[in-house]
């Protein structure tokens, strides 16, 4: 058991920060992000001894994380517990200042969960369509449509025209 724990602990220390960033983009709250990461790694721990393809460990963990997020969202957990859902009815952000960049994350949290997951995996994790489809366990076509819809929804929340960098 010691060997299992050592390997698992080393992997957690190396990857939990990255996974937490992705989780934060998915749920919009650091506390929830840490809960998501912890729940995902608990599930990973259950399967740790059965994992043989360690080169696919990141993809497997990411898949667990996203599935955990979607499952908890489906059950209404985040809708019920959301603590950072402040109204965005002020002047539309231009995304140029630090404050406005943070507002982007709040707007992202308003995009439906599966679309949000597709956006985060494609444009934050920079996954290919195929890898995103694997993480979401859906077809490439579904990823395309969820991404398109997610962009359209996000665009509807943002001012037009969008500022460039």
């Amino acid at each position: 058991m010691k060997g299992k724990d050592d390997g698992f602990a080393a992997y957690f220390a190396a990857k939990s920060g990255t996974m937490r960033g992705t989780a934060y983009l998915l749920c919009g709250d650091w506390h929830r992000a840490e809960d998501l990461v912890q729940n995902a790694f608990i599930k990973l721990y259950r399967a740790w001894n059965r994992i043989t393809e360690h080169e696919k460990l990141d993809a497997y963990t990411r898949q667990i994380l996203v599935r955990t997020f979607l499952d908890e969202t489906r059950r209404g957990f985040f809708r019920r517990e959301q603590v950072t859902d402040e109204p965005i009815d002020r002047e539309a952000p231009r995304l140029g200042s630090t404050e406005d960049r943070v507002v982007l994350l709040q707007l992202l949290a308003k995009v439906p969960p599966r679309q949000r997951a597709a956006l985060v995996l494609r444009f934050w994790e920079d996954l290919s369509l195929e890898d995103t489809a694997q993480a979401l366990r859906c077809s490439v076509g579904t990823v395309k449509s969820q991404t398109s819809r997610g962009l359209a929804n996000l665009r509807a929340l943002l001012p037009a025209p969008t500022a460039t960098y």
């Binding site: 995304l95 994350l105 444009f123 996000l154 665009r155």
Partner: peptide, 23 residues
């Protein structure tokens, strides 16, 4: 907002967001 704009905006937003201590 296009794909590349979102890619850049996400990185800028995360850079501007304070992170809590490591887990």
């Amino acid at each position: 907002m296009h794909e590349q704009e979102l890619r850049v905006a996400l990185r800028n937003a995360m850079d501007a967001t304070p992170r809590p201590p490591e887990m």
